[in-house]
């Protein structure tokens, strides 16, 4: 019994301490943001690494998700004779929820794990240590550009995901199922609001971009500098980032759309 209590206490303390360290870490990294402005090339490289290289998987997934949504939505709506609303169903689901969330989950798997592994290996091969000895703060030089790159890339990826998804839905609805094209677009325009839906979706994906990249760089920086430690940290990144995205999505949705 006391053994159980002790383990519980130790775990709680350990988790709390880690969360505290992650926040201090974030503060130190954010302090490096102003120094990035004159050296935007560093950020550019990271937008390339996490954004451009994730583009294909995001676009392809978005296309299929949109197509499935249209197909599934059609089967439900056809019973009520409301297939004209298919555009609304597809676009609202994508813009509000699936775009930001699925794009963030894919981002965590594609770019987040790569970030953790990269930073973890830099630590294991003493590159971070060497930077410190060259009087360069690795938090500012290595971590900050990656964090900023993630925050910039994520909303763009989510927007691309949603847009491609709507095009995919359009293809299925209008092309295959014979929904009227005019109704598809006009119903959508009548129901989707620029601020309420689209701006909130963008805000969501920025938050997800910050959180996923933050978890990824922290896990890398905090990894045990061995090959086993780095592989564990990479796994943790994907698991923790995915859970964080889903949990935060609930909170954000409740805050943004809850009062309707």
């Amino acid at each position: 019994m006391t053994g159980f209590l002790q383990r519980l206490g130790a775990t709680t303390l350990g988790v709390t301490e880690r969360i505290g360290r992650a926040h201090l870490f974030l503060l130190h990294v954010l302090a490096g943001f102003p120094g990035l402005l004159p050296r935007f090339g560093l950020v550019m490289k990271q937008i390339y690494a996490s954004g451009v290289l994730s583009l294909l998987i995001i676009a392809v997934s978005g296309l299929f998700v949109g197509m499935v949504l249209a197909l599934q939505g059609y089967n439900t709506l056809v019973d009520f004779g409301a297939t004209e609303s298919l555009g609304v169903v597809v676009s609202l689901s994508l813009v509000r929820e699936l775009g930001p969330v699925v794009a963030a989950l894919l981002f965590a798997g594609r770019a987040g794990s790569a970030l953790t592994a990269e930073i973890g290996l830099m630590k294991a091969t003493e590159q971070l240590s060497a930077m410190e000895m060259m009087a360069v703060n690795p938090l500012h030089r290595v971590v900050a550009p990656r964090l900023l790159g993630g925050i910039i890339a994520m909303p763009l990826l989510a927007a691309i995901f949603s847009a491609v998804g709507i095009l995919g839905g359009h293809f299925v609805a209008v092309g295959l199922l014979g929904v009227d094209e005019g109704a598809f677009w006009s119903q959508m325009q009548a129901k989707v609001d620029l601020y309420e839906d689209i701006a909130n979706g963008v805000i969501k994906s920025m938050v997800f971009g910050l959180v996923v990249t933050w978890i990824a760089v922290f896990e890398g920086y905090d990894a045990v500098p061995t090959s086993e430690g780095v592989s564990r940290a990479t796994t943790r990144t994907v698991v923790h980032a995915s859970l964080a995205v889903l949990g935060l999505d609930f909170v954000l949705t409740a805050l943004m759309f809850g009062d309707e």
Binding site: I47, Y48, A153
Partner: peptide, 27 residues
């Protein structure tokens, strides 16, 4: 080439946002 790709990426993202704003929503 990194810069060019990032440029294309940003344009694609902006175009997607613009499409969402103009074509999908009731701006």
């Amino acid at each position: 080439s990194v810069q060019i790709w990032v440029g294309l990426f940003v344009i694609a993202g902006m175009a997607a946002l613009l499409m969402l704003a103009m074509k999908v929503s009731n701006i």
